[in-house]
């Protein structure tokens, strides 16, 4: 049951990325590394949050 409910290998794959959860920190890091940022955000009343309902 535990394994059935947990995400399967094909699910929640974006959590394999270590996201920065503060936008200012992300901007500072991007400027330092000279890289663009991917901003992952979704609409909805909280239930679409990319990191889950945390």
């Amino acid at each position: 049951m535990f394994a059935l409910v947990r995400p399967q290998p094909t699910e929640w794959r974006h959590l394999q990325v270590q996201w920065i959860t503060d936008v200012v920190a992300a901007r500072k890091q991007a400027a330092k590394d000279d890289k663009p940022m991917v901003v992952l955000y979704t609409g909805g009343a909280g239930y679409n949050e990319p990191l889950g309902i945390c």
Binding site: Q18, W19, I20, T21, D22, A25, A26, L51, C54
Partner: peptide
């Protein structure tokens, strides 16, 4: 995780 990567608290 370093502070800037911490997961938000639950809803």
């Amino acid at each position: 995780l370093p502070p800037e990567r911490r997961r938000p608290r639950s809803f």
